[in-house]
Design a protein around this nucleic acid. Structure first.
Length: 490
RNA sequence: GCUCCCGUGGUGUAGUCCGGCCAAGCAUUAGGGACUCUCAAUCCCCCGACUCGGGUUCAAAUCCCGACGGGAGCACCA
């Protein structure tokens, strides 16, 4: 009796023991409130470098929702800190997003909106919600810790408007004055107390040069932009939780409708170099070859190794928006990617740590290894003439005792001898160990690995001009780009 | 130290809002097996979790309190 029949009988005749059906697993993001008529969402990276795997989460989560509900996905480049900008990032970020399949409908650069920030600041000053503090950083911080208001706080808005103009006109030095949002000096979190909205910087901005000397702080420009760009829903990391609280003050003072906020948990990405400053220094010093060095966790490095955009998408959708901190799982990420690329990965023999062995064969043998085990892509054929030589992996060879028979994959059965291997037969009924090999005319090939090490060995001749993801049998998946190999995963 | 957030197997998650259908689902990994001339893929099996302690209740992963654990923030960075 078949299993299905059994289940049917049980279900019909003994309903109290009804066999549960397997639930179909669907990994979908939860619905968003008030989204039926479209959403406006954004991602807001700072242009300090290209995107890395961590950024891909916010990009894809936002993109998914905009694709589901329709609406706008805004890329807002937050370049209001002139000291931390890489001019190339203005181009690299959109490139990375495009590769990820993220559909940006509108791009906004914050330094092109400075007049708006100034105007909004003046408005808040007039309304008495913002003031210009003539105080240095250290003192201001100390007062806030003690919840003490400085005298400036209660001065007339007129004075602050004048001071603000002085700031804009460059009449202060850096650090002599800051524009501050009045909040609650008794707020339990000192950083929320009267937070700084705009500050002076005379650093040369890579994009705007010395046109401006007053730059908004992130919390100020974000609140202004989120409103004027019409954001309906904001999805970002838990590290922004306190920022959201700060930004609400701006919304409340202006009577603006507040977007829905979601904060997903911080994710630890093990074994990846992500920090822009470290990468930048590494590139400068020659430690890394560039932003796409495969030891890095940048999108372009992962692309170079052969990860697919779809892998990022599936992974982040399945991670959802949980507020729990978590560890990025390379195991699962690799597994998703393997599912995608296995179907199209050409198979080749790569012998790492090669040993050139004498092959004693009296007849010509021909190999017929498939390019793909399931797809009909044809065969890699090699003719092995009498008494030639062949490459085997050192560890494979050491695992075989003299006198033992084993199978050269897709070639023949051989026996290990004192000084090499000897042809035994074309085939065998016995269950033998299967080992891959490379013909003598194979070429040198090196696989770069993400841990910084290299594997060098011999790659079979038919792989010579191949470009793309391939599976080196019994070794792993490797992306070949112009004769160079980059290790993807097992 | 202070403030906030979070605690489901090794890992990632579903379920928690609105307590019962959860003796907890799925995926991944490890282990076992089938198939295969790859240690891949595919298929099957199996191990494995509600942090702890109180409370509320007929009933708690789900609500309340406490402890413990983890994370983030405490910048004139974003």
């Amino acid at each position: 009796m078949k299993k299905e029949e059994l289940i049917e009988i049980v279900n019909n005749e003994f309903p109290e023991f009804k066999v549960k059906e397997k639930k179909e697993e669907k990994h979908e993001l939860p619905e968003l409130p008030n989204a039926e008529h479209g959403v406006v969402m954004r991602m807001a990276p700072s242009p300090s470098g290209p995107l890395h795997i961590g950024h891909s989460r916010m990009a894809i989560l936002n993109d998914e929702y905009v694709k589901r509900y329709g609406g706008d996905l805004i890329l807002r480049i937050e370049d209001t800190n002139p000291g931390n900008i890489d001019i190339d990032a203005y181009d690299m970020i959109p490139e990375d997003l495009e590769w990820l399949g993220v559909n940006v409908t509108k791009t906004v650069i914050q330094t092109s909106r400075m007049d708006l920030y100034y105007k909004e600041a003046k408005k808040l000053i007039e309304l008495g919600y913002m003031y210009i503090a003539e105080i240095d950083q250290k003192k201001f911080h100390e007062l806030k810790l003690k919840s003490i208001a400085l005298p400036d706080r209660s001065m007339d808005p007129e004075i602050h408007l004048e001071r603000f103009d002085k700031m804009l006109n460059g009449e202060y030095r850096e650090g002599e004055a800051v524009a501050v949002v009045k909040t609650d000096l008794n707020h339990p979190n000192p950083s929320v107390r009267d937070w700084i909205a705009l500050r002076i910087s005379y650093k040369r901005h890579p994009l705007t040069g010395d046109k401006y000397c007053v730059y908004p702080m992130m919390n100020f420009s974000v609140a202004i932009d989120d409103h004027y760009l019409g954001l309906t829903h904001v999805i970002r990391g838990m590290d922004h939780l306190v920022n959201t609280e700060k930004q609400r003050y701006i919304f409340n003072y202006n009577g603006w409708r507040v977007p829905y906020y979601y904060h997903y948990g911080i994710i630890k990405i093990p074994g990846s170099v992500l920090k822009t400053s470290i990468i930048k220094n590494g590139i400068k010093s020659g430690k890394y070859t560039g932003w796409d060095d495969i030891r890095l966790g940048t999108i372009r490095a992962l692309k170079k190794r052969g990860y697919r955009p779809e892998t990022f998408r599936r992974y982040w959708i399945s991670s959802g928006m949980r507020e729990t901190g978590a560890t990025f799982s390379w195991e699962i990420f690799d597994s998703i990617n393997r599912q995608i690329i296995d179907k199209e990965a050409m198979r080749f023999f790569f012998v790492n740590k090669p040993v050139l062995l004498d092959l004693h064969n009296d007849i010509i043998i021909e190999s017929h290894a498939r390019y793909h085990p399931d797809m009909d892509l044809g065969y890699r054929k090699y003719k092995i003439i009498e008494n030639s030589k062949i490459y085997l992996n050192e560890d494979d060879l050491n695992s075989i005792n003299v006198g033992d028979e084993f199978r050269l994959k897709d070639l023949c059965v051989v026996k290990r001898t004192e000084n090499g291997i000897r042809y035994v037969d074309e085939n065998s009924e016995k269950k033998l160990k299967i080992i891959h090999w490379c013909p003598e005319n194979s070429f040198d090939f090196t696989v770069e690995k993400p841990d910084g090490s290299n594997d060098s060995g011999k790659l079979e001749p038919l792989a010579l001009d191949y470009n793309g993801i391939s599976q080196f049998e019994r070794y792993g998946y490797v992306n070949i780009i112009n004769g160079k190999g980059y290790f993807l995963h097992r």
